[in-house]
Design a protein around this nucleic acid. Structure first.
Length: 431
RNA sequence: GUGGUUGUAGCUCAGUUGGUUAGAGCAUCAGAUUGUGGAUCUGAGGGUCGUGGGUUCAAAUCCCAUCAGCCACCCCA
C-alpha cells in the first residue's frame, strides 16, 4: 500500500487524461480570443478579506469553505475559491479598468473550496472564465452567454439547458428579500436547519435548497422578476429579446440564485442534466457593484466561469471525435494570430447596434474574430478603438446605411471603403 | 530571514533652508473636422503626496511607526 495519497478532494491528472485537458484548454483560449478577451493570470492566493468582502460573509463559500491560512507574518490569506474577485483586484491595481474603456479578460486555473467531495465536486478544481468591465449594455450579457454556448458547441457538448434569471439590483433586491421573508415567515419553521439559518442571514439562498422536504414550500415562492425595478426589468427583457433573436434555447428559472453575493441583474447557469446532482457546468452573470465594493469607481461588469472537471466528464461520456472539434481550428479561421481581431463593427444608434450585433454573432460563429462598441461612443472614438485593436477592416452602420440595407466596409491600411450589403459582409472580407 | 533603498496624476519624474490653489512630459478624453482612425493644433479631466501618528502658526518636505515595491546577501525552483 502506498505510503501517501493525494489529499482528500484532490486528484492527479494522468497522461491519458491530460490530452483531453489540453484540448479543453486550447478550445477555451481559441474561443475567448475570438471574442477579444485577453488572458490574465493572478496569484493562487489572496488576502482573505478580498473574498469576504466580495463573495459575502454570509455566503457558504466564505462562511465554511475557504482554505484560509496565516503566513509567517500573521497575514490572513486564502487559496482562491473563485477568480472574479482576484481579477477585479488585479484589474484595479494595474489600472486596466477606466472610464470610456471596455476591458475583457479571461483566466484558466485551479480554485479551492473545502467541501465534501462527491461526483463533480472536488476541493481543488479548475475553472475557465471571462470578465467584462465597463458596459451595462444587455448585449454584453448576451455576448457572454453566446460565447459560453459556442465554447460548449465546439467541444461537442449536447443536451444542455440554459437557465436564466435576474436578481435585481441594490434598489429592488431589498424589496424582493422582504417579499421572500414574508412568504417564508410561517413556512420556514418546518423547513431544514440550513433554510432556517438562511432565512436570517441570506434569504435568497433558501431558493437554492435541494432538501426534499423543503421543495413544497419553494414551489409557491414569489419570483424575483416580479419585484424588479423598471430599469432592471427593462435590462432583463432586452437581454431575453436578444437571446431569443439569436435562437438560444433557455428557460427563465425563478429559483436560480447564485451562491455569491455580488451578482446583480442577470444570472445564468448552464446545466448538463446527465451529470447528476452537481450538474451545472458553467455559471455567471452581471455584477455591477463589485468593482466599487473593491475600491474602484462604479463600473458595470459581467462574467461567467466554466467548471472544467465537469466539462471533461461530458467530453469523456459523449465521446466526441477529436476531428470534429478541430473544425474551427486556426487554419479555417481568419484569425492570423490568437487575439488578432480582424473586423470592428462601428455602429451609430440603437437600431444600428442591434443589426451590428447580429453581424458580430454571425462572424464569430464562423470563427471570424470581430468586435463591436458596447459603450455608445462616437464614430470617431469607435474608429480610434478599431485602429488600436489593429483590425484589418471596419464595417460602419449608421442611419443612412440602415435604410439602404448596406454598410460601409473600410480597409484600415489603405483607408479605401465601399458599400457592402449586410448579407455579403462575410464573403467580402474573405477576399 | 539579514542589510540597503524607494514610495508624488494611468506612466516617467520635478517640487527651493518647511511657506499661496502640488507641477511637467507622455498617455487619456473632447473640439478644430455637425458621419470617418493614425499626424498637427487647442482645451479639459485626472492627486487620500503609500498609510497612521507626531513636531510646527504652517508638512509632499522634519521625526517615529507601519505597509508595499525594488536591489543585494542567505537559500533556492
Amino acid at each position: 500500500m502506498a505510503k501517501y495519497a493525494v489529499p482528500r478532494g484532490t486528484k492527479d491528472i494522468l497522461p491519458d487524461e491530460t490530452a483531453l485537458w489540453q484540448r479543453l484548454e486550447s478550445a477555451c483560449r481559441r474561443v475567448f480570443g475570438l471574442y477579444n478577451y485577453g488572458e490574465i493570470r493572478t496569484p493562487i492566493f489572496e488576502a482573505t478579506d478580498l473574498f469576504a468582502r466580495s463573495i459575502g460573509v454570509s455566503s457558504d463559500i466564505v462562511s465554511k469553505e475557504m482554505y484560509e491560512f496565516k503566513d509567517r507574518k500573521g497575514r490572513s490569506l486564502t487559496l482562491r475559491p473563485e477568480a472574479t474577485a482576484p481579477v477585479v483586484r488585479a484589474a484595479l491595481e494595474n489600472n486596466l479598468i477606466g472610464p470610456d474603456k471596455l476591458t475583457k479578460l479571461y483566466y484558466i486555473g485551479p480554485m479551492f473550496r473545502y467541501e465534501r467531495p462527491q461526483a463533480g465536486r472536488q476541493r481543488q478544481f479548475h475553472q475557465a472564465g471571462v470578465e467584462v468591465f465597463g458596459s451595462a449594455d444587455p448585449l454584453v450579457d448576451a455576448e457572454i452567454i453566446l460565447l459560453n454556448l459556442q465554447l460548449f458547441q465546439e467541444l461537442g457538448l449536447n443536451d444542455l439547458s440554459v437557465n436564466l434569471n435576474s436578481v435585481g439590483c441594490s434598489v429592488c433586491r431589498p424589496d424582493y428579500r422582504q417579499k421572500l421573508k414574508e412568504y417564508f415567515h410561517d413556512k420556514v419553521k418546518k423547513m431544514c436547519a440550513d433554510c432556517l439559518n438562511r432565512y436570517e442571514t441570506n434569504t435568497l439562498r433558501i431558493l437554492d435548497c435541494k432538501e426534499a422536504g423543503c421543495q413544497a414550500a419553494l414551489e409557491g415562492a414569489p419570483a424575483a422578476v416580479a419585484s424588479l425595478c423598471p430599469e432592471c426589468l427593462a435590462h432583463f427583457q432586452a437581454a431575453i429579446k436578444t437571446l431569443d433573436y439569436q435562437q438560444v434555447n433557455f428557460v427563465v428559472n425563478k429559483r436560480l440564485v447564485r451562491g455569491l453575493d455580488y451578482y446583480t441583474r442577470t444570472t445564468f447557469e448552464i446545466i448538463a442534466p446527465s451529470l447528476g446532482a452537481q450538474n451545472a457546468i458553467s455559471g455567471g452573470g452581471r455584477y455591477d457593484g463589485l468593482v466599487e465594493t473593491l475600491g474602484g469607481k462604479p463600473t458595470p461588469a459581467a462574467g461567467f466561469a466554466v467548471g472544467m472537471e465537469r466539462v471533461i466528464t461530458l467530453m469523456t461520456n459523449d465521446a466526441v471525435p477529436a476531428g470534429q472539434t478541430a473544425r474551427m481550428g486556426r487554419q479555417e479561421c481568419l484569425m492570423t494570430n490568437e487575439g488578432d481581431i480582424i473586423l470592428y463593427l462601428v455602429t451609430l444608434g440603437e437600431e444600428a447596434k442591434k443589426l451590428g450585433f447580429d453581424q458580430l454573432v454571425k462572424l464569430r460563429k464562423k470563427g471570424i474574430s470581430a468586435e463591436i462598441d458596447y459603450l455608445g461612443r462616437s464614430l470617431k472614438a469607435q474608429l480610434k478603438t478599431a485602429d488600436r485593436l489593429g483590425v484589418k477592416y471596419v464595417y460602419i452602420i449608421g442611419e443612412a446605411e440602415l435604410k439602404q440595407g448596406q454598410g460601409i466596409l473600410k480597409k484600415m491600411a489603405t483607408a479605401e471603403q465601399k458599400e457592402i450589403k449586410f448579407d455579403s459582409l462575410e464573403e467580402e472580407i474573405k477576399l
